[in-house]
Design a protein around this nucleic acid. Sequence first.
DNA 1: CGGCTATTTGAGAGAAATCAAGGATAGTGG
DNA 2: CCACTATCCTTGATTTCTCTCAAATAGCCG
Lengths: 266, 266
Amino acid sequence: MFDTLKARNSPTAKCNAQILRFERQEKNTVSDRYIMPGSPCSSCSARSKAICAGLSDDEMDGFSRNIRTRLIKAGNSIYREFEKANYFYTVVSGEIRLANLLGDGRRQLTAFKSAGDLLGEHNGGIYQSDAEAVCDAVVCQIPIKILEKYTNEVPAMRVTLNTKMQNELCDLRHHAILLGRKTPIEKIATFLTARSENCEWSDDDKAEVVLTMGRSDIADFLGLTIETVSRTITKLKNMGLLLVPTSHSIVITDQACLKRLAENEQ
Amino acid sequence: MFDTLKARNSPTAKCNAQILRFERQEKNTVSDRYIMPGSPCSSCSARSKAICAGLSDDEMDGFSRNIRTRLIKAGNSIYREFEKANYFYTVVSGEIRLANLLGDGRRQLTAFKSAGDLLGEHNGGIYQSDAEAVCDAVVCQIPIKILEKYTNEVPAMRVTLNTKMQNELCDLRHHAILLGRKTPIEKIATFLTARSENCEWSDDDKAEVVLTMGRSDIADFLGLTIETVSRTITKLKNMGLLLVPTSHSIVITDQACLKRLAENEQ
DNA sequence: CGGCTATTTGAGAGAAATCAAGGATAGTGG
DNA sequence: CCACTATCCTTGATTTCTCTCAAATAGCCG
């Protein structure tokens, strides 16, 4: 089960957002837990990509005493829009989606966050989106005060944080271009190309893209409906650019062509 | 003349982006100029809202010695996407649009920046968008190195910069929701509502929104065509929510209703 | 195996884009 | 100052693409 929420894409969908919200809160009461009292940062697989990459071993030691590691089960939320923001989170493993709802249930995802990424976008002390686990995920919970303290005292951390914010701005900007001006086929091509970036390419230039999320998450990320996502993937398959062994696995067979579709960008 | 570029909205538009780009470069060669050697920061109307708000008079003195004030004529660009980034800019007056082009000329604006806003989004030392003056504008040119120096040394500036980046992230996130999921009527309502935020409201609850940009800028900002922008404004007019004295001036007559349309957000 | 959910596919409707033309506006030059 | 011209804006007719509605298929977990 990848999605708790049914797709509520359409501008005219009149589903009851209150019920939606209630269901989500119910989900939220179960099974998230702290998996360890401190955290073994020394062996953390995400450390090199995370906000703590720039810390010395000594600094890391002090830092780690203030953070907690949490397991978030698929579908559960870490925080919700409009909640008071007390923590940042670093994704250790798994994948998190940032979601925003309109009053009638329409949903827009603004990012998928994975290992090393920083979560906790807030403004005026309030979270700006729902952060939900796409699949089981492990995150580090960092009190905002602590992160602020370290960014004030450790220049390296300041630089890392700054870079991460700039990357996020850059990603959001490109996503706005995609949402505003790209066709469905270009949207899917862009999405798959981006996802394939950290993949290993076989000798015959193929790569498997693993989709941890369902079609409705992809649709809500790209500003489409699940049907259009499905049809567009089928179209790309028929064009011979990719294979679809299972719905959660896509093998890119013509990287160059897919990239050309994606990067109509100048 | 508000727009140099014709609208190139449609996914199927096959206009030649090369020509577009050339024309833009031509424009860029004329008439931008430095309007003063140093800058009279003490009397700057944008200072309280700008990045330099947190500086003491002494600090401001040193800071101002490193910056230049430039006049940018309507339609001209300050910098372009893919250019090496050497400067940040603070908008003193006028309005700047951030634009990105796709290969076939489709355009997406990601923000309008006005007095007090900071420009210069870059990643890996490269600007991420074209910054162009919507109308005649004055900007302060701040070498990136200088801004970095001051953010390192002056905590207040660090806080201001951080807040500005968070606001920008927040704006972009909300814009992504708009682009991905809102209807034309909601898009226009959101746009006008946001623009009316700094307006004075008359006794009978009316406010004039001045649109410095043309319909094609609005269309490219909201992910629509100029025709749809025009038709939608007419529709809102017919619904009795606003008046359109001139195409660049819109008087909101039913703020509450417009806001309700805009904030279908929960 | 059976029920549930996710995904795919088809048919039809609807909304926004495209194509086209007329009217308003602003800036230019006489 | 006014007429002229280029551009911008609005409106209408038509097309096209995506969404909606509906149903069948596939995949997963108990």
